[in-house]
Amino acid sequence: MNRRSVIAMLRTILRRDPPTPPTPEGRDEAPAAPPRSVENLVAELREMATTRGRFVCARHGTEAAVVEFVRRYSDASELTIDSYAGRRWQRVPVPADEATFGDRVAEGVQDALHNADVISLHLLNPEWTPFFCPSCALVYCGQCWTITENDDPWPGTLRGICPEGHATVLTK
Rank of each mutant, 00 (worst) to 15 (best):
E68D: 08
P24F: 12
N150T: 15
T23M: 08
P134Q: 00
Q110S: 14
C57K: 00
E47M: 06
T20A: 15
F69W: 03
A30P: 01
V169F: 06
G142S: 01
C144T: 06
T51I: 07
D111A: 12
T168L: 14
T50R: 13
R27D: 04
T168R: 11
D75P: 00
V38F: 04
L14M: 06
L123I: 02
S83Q: 00
I147H: 01
G156M: 11
R59V: 11
W154A: 13
V105Q: 12
W89Y: 13
D152H: 10
P18T: 06
D117H: 05
D152K: 11
R15S: 14
A112K: 07
T148Y: 09
H60E: 11
H166N: 13
M48D: 13
F55T: 03
L41Q: 12
S5I: 08
L45D: 14
V105W: 05
A99I: 11
V70I: 15
G165W: 10
L124F: 06
R11V: 03
A64F: 01
V66R: 13
F132S: 03
R27Y: 10
E63M: 02
T23E: 12
E39Q: 11
V67W: 03
A33G: 01
A85S: 15
G53I: 04
P93W: 04
L124Q: 05
G26Q: 08
R27E: 12
R11Y: 04
P21C: 04
V118F: 03
H114M: 13
M48G: 10
W89L: 15
G86Q: 05
V109S: 08
V169L: 11
S77C: 08
Q143C: 07
A58W: 08
W154P: 03
I147R: 06
A76R: 10
A8G: 09
L79K: 01
T100G: 15
T157R: 11
H60V: 05
G53K: 04
T12K: 01
T100F: 07
V67R: 03
T100W: 09
R11G: 12
S135N: 04
E98H: 09
A167S: 12
R16Y: 00
T12P: 02
A96K: 10
L170G: 05
E44Q: 07
R4M: 10
N115S: 12
I13D: 04
P19W: 10
V139W: 00
P155F: 14
A112V: 09
W154S: 06
L45A: 14
T148N: 09
F132D: 02
D82N: 15
R3W: 13
A49D: 13
C141R: 00
R11L: 09
D151F: 06
R3G: 11
A43C: 01
C144P: 02
W145C: 03
A64N: 01
A30M: 05
M1K: 09
A116Y: 03
W128M: 07
E63W: 00
P35R: 07
C162D: 15
T20V: 14
T12E: 06
G26R: 12
C144R: 00
R46Y: 06
V38H: 00
Y73P: 01
R72F: 14
